[in-house]
Design a protein around this nucleic acid. Structure first.
Lengths: 364, 364
DNA sequence: ACAAGATGATTAATCGTTTAATCAACGCCT
DNA sequence: AGGCGTTGATTAAACGATTAATCATCTTGT
């Protein structure tokens, strides 16, 4: 029960100057009419006393908490640090705090996580869904960061263009038989990247898609991807849809004695933390998370403060549920942010040098 | 100005039942004296109306926000997902929300980040410092997750024991010349891991420490670690102090045609996301973040709600600053949580099979 | 039967901030 | 000089929940 009555409040400042609290409030917020001289004095004593406004008091009065929620259904996603950092930065610049919620990969717990945020009184939330999960009605403005092709998406990287860029990079290097590596065929993001990839190539280049999830269903998690066979079949480039899978491909090839990039090219996506430290460093596509976060937060703040552009919840059960006000997906003018190609050492022309594509001596 | 007057409040419930707000409050919190029958009716209508208590109102009255802050000076740390997930879970079980703050690696911005949290009215905060940065006075209970040897540490993994375990694992496999790989000699965590490692070995086993930071100062970031030379010098095992460096070592060795674990063993620390997907999967030490988070949050909540055990801010400038109440580092009974050895495929006995330690054909 | 205690509910104050409404001076114009 | 707009400040009423203090009943003991 030790209430930490820490800083002074408005009335303390008011008392110490012999003015009213309203005047102090007005002076500090610059809203009412206060003489410049008095504003100066109030500012000074506020600073001297180390005044910090009570968010609770302000929130109660204004009905806004100044806090945004951040929901990542799959928080173990290695992209999380990038996203959290970018959102937190954009939010703090806009004067908002960021409350995190985790649904531990469980789709059912996502609603629960969202409810926790709502109960904490967030003014809006940023949701990065995975696998096209439905966003439950939140009763507050919601910004969705997924992929442009998903209905309801607010802003995201241009995954399609990203796919195109990396495809062109591989094509220009001279690759003619490319294996695309993805995790799940139900992911919108991955499908867009793959779609863009294929759209950049004509019939002279052959592609094939390997879905890791399907493979692991048969061979168990962590199984080999069978890339050595693919090399023997003539594939010279392996374009993973995420750096995590690129890493898997890279090490599997290396373990089999296939040199990268000399005998096989590997590329990834997202420029994750390890892409620069592995040997060879990964060629990858980087998303501009700072810009994406800025846009998402700006759209959210606009909706919160000015009742900006919102779109009624998606089709389906959205308007059927009447107990809650419908979720309000915010929209942004610029909804797709270009990705940037980062060329490092893991990609190169096929069949460089003299080596056979397969040394064979170290097959597991 | 569209105030989202969403849910009903206490008075709405009170009015709809013809009782007073105090009674409703008492009934829902179970504190005052209300007849069981009335409690039942109040609970029912509260649920029917979809009542959610206003955190702002509650916070203003009780002086507690029900929110904890989470500070990671280096949010790009790949451990972040694990930590954030664990802390958020423990906090939500304890009825608290988690507000994140990032100082983007900049030590100076750490104070700023902490201040942002304080201004938002967090009841306490969890800080995971890096490189022994000083914790600025926060004016609220603070739990520090670092390493047991750091003064002021609240709880953490037992890095020393972790080092011992992995050393014993390598010793038992038969390795006699081991290279330890760390990033920075100023990191308490890394020093503890290395210290524990060495403490488990007698003079028959030779170890050497490679600090990546020193190497990169000379050769530039992302440079090779020169592990091929080390193999030639007779090192058979490479024990990295983090999975990130283990990954770096693994790929560097593989790129040079040195098979892992056949010709060289590589181990890591922390069981990061990629440790299972690389080939060979990484042998590593896993921290029990769930337990660590539970302990940290419990200590924090205890200090917040019962004024639990706290320790005055560290020596030095802590008590010199008089404008803020001193920071209160909370303590926990169990401050070191054992790490767990996870044996996978990247470690094995030295010189297994017939292969020469170095094939040499693929040296970069 | 009456004082004393237990029970169940209400009153009213409070947390700190914002803001609409009010008020007192003062200068200015006709 | 009296009415009027402007300036600079104050008053007072919220916002929603918590809680100490109070009050009305009803039970119980002597």
């Amino acid at each position: 029960m030790v209430s930490t009555r820490t800083g002074p409040n408005l009335s303390r400042i008011a008392a110490s100057l012999g003015v009213s609290v309203a005047t102090v409030s007005n002076a500090l917020s610059g809203k009412g009419r206060v003489s410049v001289e008095l504003v100066e004095r109030i500012r000074a004593t506020a600073a001297a006393l180390g005044y910090v406004p009570s968010q609770a008091g302000r929130a109660l009065r204004t009905g806004r908490s100044g806090v945004l929620g951040l929901v990542l259904p799959d928080i173990s996603n290695p992209l999380f640090p990038q996203i959290a950092q970018a959102i937190e930065y954009s939010a703090s610049v806009a004067g908002y705090g960021v409350l995190i919620a985790d649904s531990r990969g469980d789709v059912g717990m996502q609603t629960e996580a969202i409810n926790r945020l709502v109960e904490r009184g967030v003014d809006g939330m940023v949701i990065v869904p995975r696998r096209g999960t439905r966003i439950a009605d939140a009763g507050c403005p919601v910004a969705v960061i997924d992929t442009p092709s998903t209905p309801g998406n607010t802003v995201s990287a241009d995954h399609w263009q990203g796919g195109r860029e990396i495809a062109k990079h591989l094509r220009d290097l001279g690759h003619r038989k490319i294996l695309l590596i993805g995790a799940s065929s139900t992911s919108n993001v991955q499908n867009d990247r793959i779609g863009g990839f294929k759209s950049a190539l004509d019939a002279t280049i052959k592609t094939e898609v390997l879905w890791i999830e399907n493979l692991e269903e048969r061979n168990g998690p962590g199984c080999l991807l069978g890339l050595v066979d693919k090399v023997q079949q003539g594939f010279t480039a392996f374009a993973a849809v995420s750096d995590l899978h690129a890493l898997r491909a890279l090490t599997e090839l290396q373990r089999a004695g296939i040199a990268v990039p000399d005998s096989a090219t590997v590329t990834g996506f997202d420029d994750l933390i390890w892409s620069t430290v592995v040997t060879p460093a990964l060629t990858t596509m980087r998303m501009d998370m700072a810009t994406i976060a800025d846009i998402a937060v700006a759209a959210l703040v606009d909706a919160i403060e000015n009742g900006g552009p919102i779109e009624k919840g998606g089709p389906g059960e959205a308007s059927a549920d009447e107990s809650l006000p419908d979720s309000r997906l915010v929209t942004a003018e610029k909804s797709r942010v270009p990705m940037q190609l980062v060329v490092r050492q893991s990609s190169g022309p096929p069949w460089v040098g003299k080596n056979e594509p397969l040394s064979g001596e170290l097959l597991t």
